[in-house]
Design a protein around this nucleic acid. Structure first.
Length: 192
DNA sequence: CTCGCGATATTCT
DNA sequence: GAATATCGCGAGA
């Protein structure tokens, strides 16, 4: 039985949430169709101390203010002028921590060859889900167009791998923190 | 297979 | 004016 994730799920420690999100389902309603994807790759951003995070140093700007909402909201922003990134805010209000959703495994009738390329990267999954900037600040516990749910599957700990984060080399030693989590040998995990 | 690069626009300095 | 939490293409090996 699918069950929408509650506020309590999101307001826990960011590293716990990042790992716990693996194997959960993201549901996106757009018009008459419903897109569903299983989360297979995440990254934790733990500001203000985390140099790789937009909330580094406790900085608040127009772009990053939704980062400071309580857990369960979305932080969506544009990167490289082309791609949107989808983040799930964690922890309590004014604690700017979040989990970047890096890859989903599409659920439904897709060719295997398509599945591999639809949402195996943070920019691509936003395009697939038709996410736009209006999703910034969306509340996942209330929204009618996007939410997360558990389908009662247990994720084996042995399937979860951790690694350094991707694309944040400018953060130097912070880029080496093992804060990227993914499901081992899942074909939808982003390459590298 | 790996590497390098350009696209593109919003944000921040 | 510079930087950017990415992606796909084309060249070379």
């Amino acid at each position: 039985m699918p069950k929408r994730l509650s506020r309590e799920f999101y307001t826990r420690s960011t590293l716990i949430v990042a790992k716990d999100l693996l194997g959960k389902y993201l549901v996106r309603r757009v018009g008459r169709k419903t897109l569903v994807g299983k989360i297979v790759e995440t990254e934790a951003y733990i500001g203000p101390k985390d140099k790789a995070s937009h909330s580094y140093g406790g900085k608040i700007t127009d772009r990053t203010k939704t980062f400071y909402l309580k857990g369960g909201h979305l932080y969506v922003y544009l990167c490289y002028g082309i791609y949107l990134m989808l983040n799930i805010v964690t922890e309590k209000e004014n604690k700017p921590e979040a989990v970047l959703i890096r890859a989903l495994e599409p659920v439904g009738k897709y060719d295997f060859s398509k599945i591999k390329n639809l949402s195996n990267g943070p920019g691509k999954l936003c395009r697939w889900l038709e996410i736009d900037k209006s999703f910034n600040g969306e509340d996942l516990t209330k929204s009618k167009r996007i939410w997360l749910e558990s389908r009662g599957e247990k994720m084996k700990k042995s399937r979860i791998k951790a690694s350094r984060r991707i694309g944040v080399d400018y953060a130097r030693e912070w880029a080496n923190k093992p804060w990227r989590f993914y499901i081992f040998e899942n074909p939808s995990v982003s390459r590298r």
